Simulated scan of single mutants.
Amino acid sequence: MANFEKEYEKSPIKTDCLELYLREGILYCIYNEVRELDLEKARICVQDRLNYIGEQVYPSLFDITQVKHSTKEARDYLADEGNTGVAASAILVTSPMVKMAANIYIHVNRPKNPTRMFTSKEEAVQWLSQYRA
């Protein structure tokens, strides 16, 4: 149990949409495989995240490598009210299609907090570190 306590600040959880855990002041949100992230699923994911963090605000790494597509309504929601509790967002991508969608999200939807896209988890965490409380 001692190793677990050192590795995580809060017990990890898995929901229907996400795996969530806190490590060194950064919230990790790993999306499960999703064919289409629509507004309803986006709202569920945000609610799961808010239930996990309570009133806290964290720099957050969003691993969307398993998300195949997202709707405009979902992106609009996530860029604005869906960003509650997020100090900064690092979006982890791998495929060219997901990379294109993340670029659209950042440049067209214009999230209300600092947001960058990464293909390296280590670089994403390094960038997010500057936003820790």
Rank of each mutant, 00 (worst) to 15 (best):
A2N: 09
F4D: 13
E5D: 06
E5K: 06
K6L: 08
E7G: 10
E7D: 13
E7A: 14
Y8T: 06
Y8M: 03
E9N: 04
K10D: 02
P12G: 08
P12M: 04
K14M: 02
T15F: 08
D16C: 03
D16H: 04
C17S: 12
E19L: 12
L20Y: 03
Y21S: 12
L22M: 02
E24K: 07
E24A: 05
I26V: 00
L27P: 01
Y28E: 08
E33S: 14
E33N: 13
E33L: 13
E36V: 14
E36Q: 15
D38E: 11
L39C: 15
E40K: 14
E40R: 12
K41M: 05
A42W: 00
R43N: 11
I44H: 12
C45N: 10
C45V: 06
C45Y: 05
C45M: 14
C45K: 08
C45S: 14
V46T: 15
D48G: 11
R49W: 00
R49V: 01
L50I: 10
Y52G: 05
Y52P: 07
E55K: 13
E55Y: 04
V57Y: 00
S60W: 02
S60Y: 03
F62A: 07
I64R: 12
Q66W: 00
Q66D: 05
V67K: 07
V67D: 06
V67F: 02
V67P: 09
K68H: 05
H69L: 13
T71P: 12
T71N: 12
K72I: 10
E73Y: 15
R75E: 15
D76P: 09
Y77L: 04
A79M: 11
A79R: 11
E81K: 15
G82E: 09
G82M: 11
G82K: 13
N83S: 13
N83C: 05
N83G: 11
T84G: 14
G85N: 06
G85Q: 05
V86T: 06
S89W: 00
I91R: 03
I91A: 03
L92V: 04
L92P: 08
T94L: 08
S95G: 14
M97K: 10
V98P: 14
K99F: 01
M100V: 03
A101C: 10
A102I: 02
N103H: 03
N103Y: 00
Y105T: 06
Y105M: 10
Y105Q: 07
I106C: 04
H107Y: 00
H107P: 00
N109H: 10
P111Y: 07
P111S: 13
K112C: 08
N113P: 09
N113E: 05
N113G: 08
P114G: 12
T115V: 05
R116E: 04
M117I: 02
F118G: 09
T119G: 12
S120L: 15
E122H: 14
V125K: 10
Q126I: 04
Q126T: 06
W127P: 11
W127C: 10
W127S: 14
L128M: 04
L128W: 02
S129F: 01
S129M: 06
Q130T: 01
Y131S: 01
R132S: 02
A133H: 05
A133T: 07
